[in-house]
Write a protein that binds this DNA or RNA. Structure first.
Lengths: 346, 346
DNA sequence: ACGCCCACATGGAACGTTCTACAATCGGTC
DNA sequence: GACCGATTGTAGAACGTTCCATGTGGGCGT
């Protein structure tokens, strides 16, 4: 039996065991374990020592049950989205130092948002952070009535009372991309959109207004796409075959953009020689040396930080009203954009 | 206040509220809610009705605290690994119908395995499922002494008592790939390995023995790689520049393989015209139409199912001794492999 | 009629914490 | 030397559930 520091019987040591061992009351042991004030330095040391000896670990469940504060944030995320993975990473980074635990609940093809949220609720989370929720606004409203809810990357209008929104200024990002391409000399700039995906509407709108602002209304071209490589590839096929072919493409996101890149390369259309490609997100994907994608960067750590911060603020009663936090995107110029090879058509 | 079916005060309804409402004791209400026997059909209906009315949801924490069985499986996974995401998806699919809940704990750059496991332990999980754990064997041994532990995709030798292993026959998979390439007429087949990644050693070994068995010992060539696209790309640069160039490459996994593909395409080396590429995993990536990668498929749903099954078996005392479940891989032939263009050198 | 068993129902004690009292000890102050 | 406030400690009741040991009643065999 390796490493068996437990109490006599096989069970996991409890606060009572610890208290007995240290020769104090359970109440005092509790005080020490949670770092509250009310214990002398001497006893504190003694209890801690005893805890180490018997390998005591507080029971999160029991602790949560008793204290009205659970310090638990429920996070719903899409298991297959790298973007969400990055966000979760950031959420851990902010929440744990702030003394909050994270309960993760995944959304998959077979496990809907409804189920994901239910398990979080059963776990007695104090607040919910939903990454790119697709649930109808009515459902979100209902949830927001029960506990603080933060929606990340989903733009809700009109604002839902009690629901915090944290998102990137998607329209602005699309505009930055268009500005960049126009500055390089492009005129025929197409957009592969994300359909109903969170943020897609704003990016589409941003693209349209930016094009208009540059007097390129007649060059506006939106091709139906999506948020995966396959959908990007499909759209790219359409663009590659079209006459005249645009000289630049703004894809809905990086995954979509890699699908586009792949099709162009295989079709013998050099990037950025014959056509420029811009992504969105600045995920790990875009940064890979061999993809080297010009993209609109979302400030993921900041989005994550804000989401946690908003949730905690609501819990502390620090903040009341409905709020929306909009984070500025920033263009990251890499190797997939360059001036068009031929003089732009009028 | 939309949808406010709660009890008078603002609190969430409790079992006692439900019992009062239905006119029964809390004990009986409990019986009904967990579907145990001991309640008549009439009261059962009445209680369920009342539960619906006040929107009662059992408190998972309290439930866990009281019942010695928590029916909670702790899962540690790498947030950035698509392969793990697929596994988690499969784990949900098996565990939830079996009446087990899943507690997720992510491993990230900043959050080590140690911390991930600690939180799972604090949540009073009954068993641990570790996806590709990197922790030292001593640590795993220690854990296995405390509760049932299942290691997925990590081959441990010698077997650790009390630790279940579920993995793919990586060596066999590598062999299948080599056999396929040899059957196509390839002789100069290189392998980009995965370094210290779980399974890498077995795949490397499988490649070596398969080559030897075909009398191609002198063509054995292992290039250091890794499990990401960037590492695959790097290795591909080395191969592309080498003289003579191999006519086929077996990459450590699909991500690695896509990095390889990308470099070859950019260098003007047609795939599979000039060189064939085989991946490993059969992740979503490989199936994308525009990548269309020949790869060694891991039976992810089966791995997930077995992992959960082993854990539950141990909990039910159905199974005692140390066990290892090895799942057979299967080659998935797609578009990145073809016969070599030139006659193979001797 | 009598006992007996079974299905149905209940009260109360856990589970391992934290929280709200309140008690004891100890300088220090008037 | 009584009083006070701060500090350190404790007892005991929660939290919301499940488990255990009992009550009930009515149907049925004798």
């Amino acid at each position: 039996m390796p490493a068996t520091p437990a109490v006599p019987d096989g069970k996991r040591p409890t606060l009572a065991d610890l208290a007995t061992r240290a020769g104090v009351s359970t109440a005092l042991a509790s005080i020490v374990m949670r770092g509250a004030k009310g214990a002398s330095a001497a006893t504190r040391e003694r209890v801690l020592e005893a805890a180490r000896e018997i390998g005591y670990r507080p029971d999160a469940r029991a602790r949560l049950l008793r204290s009205h504060r659970s310090h638990l944030l429920g996070v719903q995320f899409g298991l297959q989205h790298p973007f969400h993975a990055d966000l979760v990473e950031g959420i851990y980074a902010t929440a744990e130092p702030a003394g909050y635990q994270i309960a993760l609940s995944a959304v998959t093809a077979e496990r809907g948002e409804q189920r994901a949220v239910e398990t979080l609720l059963d776990d007695r989370c104090e607040a919910l952070i939903l990454l790119g929720p697709q649930a109808p606004a009515s459902r979100l409203t209902e949830l927001a009535g029960q506990l603080p809810v933060v929606s990340v990357a989903r733009h809700l209008r009109p604002p839902v009372p009690g629901l915090e929104v944290v998102r990137t200024a998607d329209d602005k990002g699309a505009r930055q991309a268009v500005d960049h391409l126009v500055a390089l000399g492009h005129r025929a700039i197409a957009h592969i959109d994300g359909g109903k995906a969170p943020g897609a509407a704003d990016r589409r709108r941003g693209y349209r207004t930016a094009m208009s602002r540059h007097g390129l209304t007649e060059h506006i071209r939106v091709v139906p796409g999506g948020l995966t490589e396959a959908e990007g590839a499909e759209a790219a096929q359409v663009l590659a075959a079209s006459q005249p072919r645009p000289t630049a493409v703004l894809a809905f996101n990086d995954r979509c953009a890699t699908g586009v890149l792949d099709v162009f390369l295989r079709s013998g259309i050099p990037v950025p020689g014959a056509i420029s490609v811009v992504g969105f997100d600045d995920s790990h994907l875009a940064r890979l040396a061999h993809i080297d994608l010009t993209t609109v960067g979302q400030d993921i750590p900041r989005l994550a930080h804000l989401a946690v911060d908003r949730a905690i603020a609501r819990l502390d009663g620090r903040d009341t009203g409905t709020g929306e936090q909009v984070v500025a995107p920033h263009l990251v110029v890499r190797g997939t954009t360059a001036p068009p090879s031929t003089a732009p058509a009028t």
